[in-house]
Design a protein around this nucleic acid. Structure first.
Lengths: 307, 307
DNA sequence: CCAGATTATTCCTGTGTGGAATAGATGCTA
DNA sequence: TAGCATCTATTCCACACAGGAATAATCTGG
């Protein structure tokens, strides 16, 4: 006995005041309607309407129950619409761009559960450490590290790229571990050349004073993966977002140094093109990762001030 | 396929994250639970949760639908409680007191539909034109015409007793129809002696001026039924609530006279004893009749001012 | 007072739900 | 890494039950 249908027929009976009419309307027989109303009364445990073979009237209980039924049916219809909309609009290909290490370490591992939540979305993930023009490349969503330039895009800050100074134990063994910033220029510093070469490393000491150190070394790259590889193999010291090294840190293949000095964090944003009607697909993706990252200590914004 | 049960199991599945546990909890088999969730997904038209034989997670659609389900189930449970309460508390004997004519003409004819709405209430109707002490007589609800005295009772105004001056065509034939108030003392006026003998009839003319006429006649009674009978048989002129004459007016057995003068209406109240917890039974009765009378032109309060 | 319409009831048929068992899959543990 | 334990999907079958048709009973309105 489908209580939903029971309630629907009951509501219609109340509104038309006529079993037979409801039967015709629902392409069924008057017999069925009669039985359904009876079944509902049995289920509810009280007479809902008083029948007199030509018309009925609601009992008090019936009146109360009728109102609730309407409420329930309306809610259910609304639910159906919501689900349908979600099902229809949150589907298809979503083109996502991100820095290489970030994508590998923080996006890909979360895709499985993202797909679980959004089975109809297909992700095309494009990893690039350089600058990517969303419009030109047909990208829907991009993760950006650092300050933003392109003002035509909508940006949402979803975390921070916490940075640290790192080296492999082997390197430190050979060259000694620097204890003060002024030792850095004597070390082999690996320089990331994303948009511009970063050969000045900035710090803030425990007293809150800023320090900038000009560094140099025999290896530069625009690829965070290459830098990671280089550091792990003991080529030198790196100054970069800690998530570039991911497991390497946990596994002890690299070690943070100069921890007395805090390297200012870079903002981590997700950007997308503004649309007249906000795209549920893009929203779903942004919301999902925003939520996920807020629970990830490596990425979540610290309560202390970022640079 | 009972959608209600489907939704219940779905909700439990979401909350426990485990088909088998829900099956045990509902004293059924895991097979049934699996099928029910599938059936719901088919009904809704979208996957609600992504299964991986050891755990699930909600899809976006599932999340939305889950919330709605909770809402629906809560509403339904509330409905069940309401109905149960109504069913339980709106039952038993209700003792009602009213003036004789009023009861006969305005209460009894509405009892059938009142019973339809409240099948479990039994009405003991006690008709009396005199004053009845609610507490002493064990009355739950009383209809009172005129100003109220007993301040220990809760009163609710539910209408007005519109009054008129009436006589039978036969009487008017014999004695002529009075056109002015000052002719009344020469007529045989029948006097109602409810609590006190009303031998002064008051009026308001079209200019709003009050007039009081002292009248007399050869018949007085404390019974409106007796007065009605007397008027119908042409004994004299009466000044009383028009509902005392009910059908007689419509049938032409009595006729309103001196219609240029308005007789001030008396308030019609329903009174009952205040209770710590308001009695649903009394409330149901009062609400029903209050509502019914508000749609009855004989009783409804006029928009023009009453005396 | 009759005619038309409406609801309750009965009997029967066909669908479909749920149970038991099996297969397939996955995560945990040693 | 392999095996075990647990979970879900699926298949097959039997029984229950919902709904249709027809009839009886009841009521309304002209």
């Amino acid at each position: 006995m489908d209580r939903m249908r029971l309630m629907e027929t009951f509501v219609r009976v109340v509104e038309t005041g006529n079993f037979s009419a409801v039967a015709r309307e629902a392409h069924t027989t008057q017999s069925a309607v009669s039985k359904q109303v009876q079944a509902l009364e049995k289920l509810v445990g009280a007479p809902l309407l008083v029948r007199s073979s030509r018309s009925h009237s609601l009992t008090e209980a019936g009146q109360l129950y009728y109102e609730r039924c309407r409420q329930v049916l309306d809610t259910l219809e609304e639910a159906q619409l919501e689900v349908h909309r979600a099902e229809h609009e949150i589907s298809g290909v979503l083109r996502v761009a991100a820095p290489v290490a970030f994508g590998r370490l923080h996006i890909v591992p979360r895709l499985a559960s993202f797909y679980a939540r959004h089975p109809k979305i297909k992700v095309h993930l494009q990893l690039d450490d350089g600058f990517v023009d969303l419009v030109a490349a047909g990208i829907d969503v991009a993760f950006r590290v650092g300050e933003l330039k392109d003002s035509r895009l909508v940006a949402r800050r979803i975390g921070s790229a916490h940075r640290a100074t790192l080296a492999s134990p082997a390197y430190l063994e050979r060259h000694g571990e620097p204890q003060h910033l002024d030792e850095l220029p004597r070390h082999n510093c690996i320089i990331y050349t994303g948009l511009t070469a970063i050969n000045e490393w900035s710090y803030r000491d425990s007293a809150g004073l800023s320090h900038v150190v000009r560094v140099d070394g025999n290896f530069q790259s625009n690829s965070s993966e290459a830098i990671r590889q280089a550091v792990c193999e003991g080529l030198g010291i790196s100054y970069s977002p800690i998530w570039v090294f991911g497991d390497d840190l946990r596994a002890g293949r690299v070690k943070p140094i100069l921890t007395r000095y805090r390297a200012p964090s870079l903002p981590l944003n997700v950007v997308f093109q503004p649309a007249r009607r906000p795209s549920l697909k893009v929203n779903s993706f942004v919301n999902y990762f925003s939520e996920a990252f807020s629970r990830d200590p490596d990425i979540a914004q610290m309560l202390t001030a970022d640079a």
